[in-house]
Amino acid sequence: MDRRTMGSPLARAIGLGSARKGVKHWWAERVSAVALVPLTLWFAAAIIAHAGSDHAAFVAWLRTPLAAILMVLLLTALFHHTVLGLQVVIEDYMHSGAKFAAVIAVRLGCFALAAAGIVATLRITFGG
């Protein structure tokens, strides 16, 4: 946001000053990435093992405690990483007020998708 056009070059460079934040976002992106390495590899292996399986077989698999736990962890880490990554992409390329709308939409969307995925998983796991 460049509010000055006649101001000094230093005033423009300083802008609104340092937010003194950013490391939390950066760190969380790394932590979720570290979590996703084993979780996504497990998921890829599971998909390969269950390629083309029918509903009954899939439900039986997701009812095992290990699969259910890992699936919930995967969804949590995946959407945490997604929201952090998408926010960076938005902030890099969007500079109007629409940036805030996009960040809010992505945040809420990722929360909703994570919740839907986790509820679906738990329903299968504990369903009758």
């Binding site: 029918d54 509903h55 009954a56 899939f58 439900v59 997701l62 699936m71 969804l75 995946l78 959407f79 997604t82 998708l113 839907a116 995925g117 509820v119 679906a120 998983t121 329903r123 299968i124 369903g127």
Partner: peptide, 15 residues
Amino acid sequence: AVVLVLWLVSAATGP
């Protein structure tokens, strides 16, 4: 990731 959620929700919905 959206497809993954759709897939899980469909499985929870039924065969």
